[in-house]
Every structure is written in C-alpha cells, then in structure tokens.
Amino acid sequence: MENKMKVEIWSDVMCPFCYIGKRNFETALEQFEYKKHIDVVWKSFLLDPSIPEIAEESYHDYLVTRKNMSPEQVKGMLENVTQSAKQVGLEYNFDKAVMVNSLNAHKLIQLAKTKALGNEAEERLFRAFFTEGKNIADKATLVQLGKDIGLDEAEINTIFSDEKYATLVNQDIQEAQRVGVQGVPFFVIDRKYGVSGAQPAQAFLENLKVAFAEWRKQNPETKLEVTQGQSCTTDGICE
C-alpha cells in the first residue's frame, strides 16, 4: 500500500460550517498537484450530545433557547450562513432541519469508513440534514442513506446494536480533546498543522503545499531504473 500524507477532519454533520469547510477543502484538493498522495480521514465530533433523538424544537428555536441568542440574532446568523453556503454551491434549508442527536449518524460514518466510504457518508448525511430536512437519528432513514452510498442493509442495522460503533465515535472525540480541538470543522494535516474553521480554499491549498513539502522530504518517492524485457501487463497483453 502506498504511503500517503494523512489529513484528518473532525466534523459534525449538524455543523453548517463543517459542510462549507468540506467543500472548500475539496476545491483546494482538486487544485493540489499531489492530491493522489493525500489520505483524507473523517473523525466524529458531537457538538451537543445532549440533543434528544426525538426532535423537540426547530434549528432556530434550538439556538434561541440553548445558546441564549435573540430571535433576531439567530435569523440574521442563519441568513448569513445560508448565503455563505450558496457561494460554494450548497443549499441550506434551516426551516426544514430536524434537530436530533447526531450519534447514530456518526455510527453510520464509522461503518462507512471500514468500507472506504467515509467521504461519501459525510456528504450524504450533510445533504440529508441541511438540504433535504431528513431525520438523521431515525434508524429507517439512516438505513436508506447508507444504502444510497452502497452499504449493505444488514451491516447498517448492526450499528444500532453493536457497541463498537459508539466506541469508535467516542475514541474520535477523546482524540480530538488530546489534539486540542475546541470547535469544528478542524483539519489536522500530517499531525503537524491544524486548520480551524471553514477556511477559504486558498488557505487549505497553502497549508497542503507546506505540509506536503515537509512530508515528501521524510517520505521520498521511490524511483527505479527499469530494464525492460518481455512481460505481461495487467490488461492481459503479453509481449
């Protein structure tokens, strides 16, 4: 397996800036010359573990009652965030958002990571929550979202009974504390550089360039002097 530089991203699928940060990072990665040498690892983070699994209030009311913000402040903030999302091609519908605990959603992400589908799970859950107004704590909904990205239904159902998935979520959260994560999104590049928040794509790109240059010095690319002879290729041609 090829050695790659790791980028770890702590995120909560209920965090509006995490989705925006994801888009900006993806834009930067597309522009990065050595993107094939980058391994992106998603990490779980719960912004508010006290939110119940059954919705009790709207996104707007949640911020008013739990964050001690005025209705006017919340309205202005959500309008600003919606515009920021639109600038990177995302549609936010806060009036449809179902405020529920995101633990089950993170369990699905942990399963997806074992199938190399972590990024797909993050994307599907973000869209489900912010755009489609789906209940990301509901088991039937999560089964369908998991199937949407290619996960097996029987395996998806294990996340609700097998404690190992909750354990993996908690391990990510404990690791975040050790790293010093105080808010999300939080990007850790090669365990040397931390990038906090939904930074512009250019900021991500600059950090990738600096970190990769250092990483490459410690992990030089193997270049062989090859003597050609008769051989068979992977597409079955022998000559």
Rank of each mutant, 00 (worst) to 15 (best):
E225V: 09
D148P: 06
G150N: 01
Q230M: 15
M14W: 01
K192L: 04
E221V: 14
A55L: 14
F17C: 02
L46Y: 05
C232T: 12
S44L: 03
S102N: 08
R23L: 01
G197M: 02
G76K: 13
C238M: 12
A211D: 06
Q83H: 12
E33G: 05
D138F: 13
M1K: 13
V210N: 04
T234D: 14
Q174N: 15
H60R: 12
E214H: 14
A128L: 06
A198T: 01
Q73N: 03
W215C: 07
R127G: 05
V169Q: 03
I38S: 05
G236K: 13
I38Q: 06
A166I: 12
T131Q: 00
T82S: 01
E122Y: 10
P71Y: 09
N93D: 08
F187M: 10
A112L: 08
F45S: 04
N104D: 15
K147R: 15
I149L: 07
L208Y: 07
D162Y: 13
R66K: 15
H37T: 10
K147T: 14
S44G: 09
E91L: 04
I173F: 03
T131W: 00
Q171I: 10
G194F: 03
T114G: 09
K209F: 11
G146V: 10
E206Q: 13
I173T: 08
L111C: 05
K223T: 13
L46V: 11
E132A: 10
E214N: 08
V188G: 07
V100W: 01
A128N: 03
L142H: 13
N68G: 08
V13T: 05
R127N: 10
F212A: 08
E155R: 06
M77H: 10
D138E: 15
S11M: 05
F45G: 02
I51Y: 11
H37I: 12
I159G: 02
G183E: 00
R178G: 13
G183A: 07
L224P: 02
E239K: 15
Q171W: 02
I20Y: 08
I20R: 07
K192I: 03
E225C: 01
K139Y: 14
E30V: 04
M5W: 08
R178H: 11
T167H: 10
N219G: 09
V100E: 00
M99R: 10
G21K: 01
A121H: 04
N135A: 07
I136C: 13
Y193G: 02
T233V: 09
Q177C: 07
R124N: 10
G146T: 06
K147L: 15
K192W: 05
A211Q: 13
L205T: 02
E72K: 14
I9K: 01
H106E: 08
G194D: 07
V98K: 10
K217Y: 07
T222F: 11
D48T: 14
V188T: 08
Y19L: 00
C238T: 08
N68L: 09
A28F: 09
Y62F: 13
F186A: 11
S161C: 09
D172C: 07
K192V: 04
P220H: 05
S50K: 15
N135T: 03
G89V: 04
S231P: 08
L145A: 09
W42V: 07
E123S: 11
K134N: 11
V40A: 14
D95C: 01
A166T: 15
F45I: 04
Y92F: 09
M1A: 15
Q31G: 06
V7D: 03
